[in-house]
Design a protein around this nucleic acid. Structure first.
Length: 469
RNA sequence: GGCCCCAUAGCCAAGUGGUUAAGGCACAGGGUUUUCAUCCCUGCAUACGUGGGUUCGAUCCCCGCUGGGGUCACCA
């Protein structure tokens, strides 16, 4: 049987980072087995639906290269006739019935049970005479539990699981508005879409016994269950939420994180390959991902680690490829393509995120001089203005003699300057660096001067010379 | 609260009935001709939640407990 997995989000807003991890696992399971990864939009709750949220899902998955294989994305709201058809089978077999109660009545019954301190089970209030259900009559359809006993099932991650009959109830299959519940729709859809593995979060474990009974009633062989652990916030116990600082994929993208880093980070939350390797591409993961190595325990989302992985990928990607990703992360003054590429080349080893490129303005535009950066610098504060001027003047004169302005020659010349001035590198180089950049940090001096170019370097040095008194 | 699941350091985690219980992140110190960063060293934490069993021996097997999480919707 061909491996087919699916990602089935609700279009209710931003795609949550935890949802993406589930999608990633589903994708990898499919691709590892040369199977299909399908996308389905679970839009059966019209109250929670957010317009355009499906497009956000498409965009996010596409950006991450988690390409789905179905040409036409499945929307549950377009499949109501299918759910009704399956519902009819259950009604005919006497395994489903129209709910005679109003919402208020059910609420009251629930409150009564709660007050009595016992769990509410709808089936204990099931009417003797069951009403026949018809689509479009405005009544919800409920599943009729029969033959109550303990339910056992197997999960590819958690092993053998079971739950007692107290977990089985007459749950709603089709709501009064005519749309199916998740509980019913996903079973029909997964069957008709020939899904082999259901990959989903642990919040569904407790409703699985009810699903099992429905599979039985529909005479459907259940797919394999792959329950992935949840992702928790670094602090606090609850599932990761916006409150814990968790952002959407879109947010991380805008903050300068690479898709490779996000996927790499997420796959390691709840999975490992039993080696000490930590940096994986999507293509590599496609070859090695193994369901049996998915963790059971939930993991905490540590953004520091994501930041580290992002740096790894910034250094690992080919320069040209990395350059393509930097669009939108440059300071507005950065227009020249060639300069930008050279800046990226010498900056990349110190980038944590692409957004750090916004601090490179001094490569594109003369900085506003701030002499206090020089006079308060720990290596320079004892020099005094006369010595500073003298050093900069010597530097200016010597650099001006360079005929072929490149990093190698600059390095040689700068080393020579150390000897002629008798200054330590920390002193001379800090002075030059600050004079041409007025930035708290910058790349290695020969590279920086090389990219700035002869004219700019000399002009900036001269301007500081003129200012120091 | 009932039910279900989980449990190796601050975090991600490997691992076995007998190991000095990997590795990474974070953190601290040091090194590489300036800075920030990279990279390389070193350190790092009394890490197998707890109490009972089983066993010659348990982190590993069993039970209780504790702790954490999930779930008890006409949400998914």
């Amino acid at each position: 049987m061909k491996t087919r997995t699916r990602f089935a989000p609700s279009p209710t807003g931003q795609l949550h980072i935890g949802g993406v991890r589930t999608a990633l696992f589903a994708y990898l399971i499919a691709k590892r087995n040369k199977g299909d990864f399908l996308l389905r939009i679970e839009d059966t709750d019209k109250k929670r639906e957010v317009k355009g949220a499906d497009q956000v899902i498409f965009d996010t998955l596409s950006w991450l290269d988690l390409q789905w294989d179905n040409q036409e994305v499945v929307y549950q709201s377009a499949r109501i006739d299918r759910y009704n058809a399956w519902a009819k089978k259950l009604v005919t077999a006497g395994l489903a019935y129209a709910d005679p109660y109003t919402a208020e009545e059910i609420t009251a019954m629930r409150a009564e049970s709660e007050a009595a301190g016992k769990p509410f089970l709808y089936r204990e209030h099931r009417p003797e005479k069951l009403e026949k259900w018809q689509p479009g009559e405005g009544k919800s359809l409920r599943f009729k539990q029969t033959n109550l006993h303990r339910v056992h099932w197997h999960d590819d991650v958690r092993g053998d699981l079971s739950a007692g009959p107290e977990n089985l109830d007459d749950f709603v299959l089709i709501k009064a508005d005519g749309l199916p519940t998740y509980n019913f729709a996903h079973i029909v859809d997964d069957y008709e879409m020939k899904i082999s593995h259901i990959v989903r979060g642990q919040e569904f474990i407790s409703s699985t016994p009810n699903f099992i009974r429905l599979y039985e009633a529909l005479k459907i062989t259940p797919p394999r269950f792959v329950t992935v652990p949840s992702i928790l916030g670094l602090t606090g116990g609850k599932k990761l939420s916006k409150r814990d600082g968790a952002k959407s994929v879109e947010d991380y993208r805008n903050d300068g994180y690479l898709k490779e880093a996000i996927l790499n980070f997420l796959v390691l939350l709840g999975w490992n390959d039993n080696s000490t390797d930590e940096i994986f591409s999507l293509a590599e993961l496609t070859d090695i991902f193994d369901i049996t190595r998915i963790q059971k325990a939930s993991a905490r989302f540590d953004e520091k680690r994501l930041l580290w992985i992002n740096g790894q990928w910034i250094r690992k990607l080919p320069l040209d490829e990395l350059y393509k990703r930097t669009e939108g992360f440059w300071p507005t003054e950065a227009q020249d393509e060639i300069t930008k590429k050279r800046v990226l080349e010498i900056m990349r080893e110190r980038l944590k995120t692409l957004a750090d490129l916004r601090e490179t303005t001094y490569f594109f535009k003369d900085p506003t001089p701030d002499l206090s950066m020089i006079t308060s610098n720990k290596f320079l504060k004892d020099l005094g203005p006369a010595r500073i001027r003298e050093l900069l003047q010597t530097t200016h004169t010597t650099l001006a003699e360079i005929t072929d302005w490149n990093a190698d020659n600059l390095r040689t010349t700068l080393n020579l300057l150390l000897e002629t001035t008798g200054e330590k590198p920390a002193t001379l180089f800090s002075l030059i660096r600050l004079s041409v950049s007025f930035a708290p940090f910058s790349p290695e001096l020969p590279f920086t001067l090389d990219v700035l170019g002869r004219d700019t370097t000399l002009r900036r040095l001269q301007s500081v010379i003129n200012m120091v008194k």
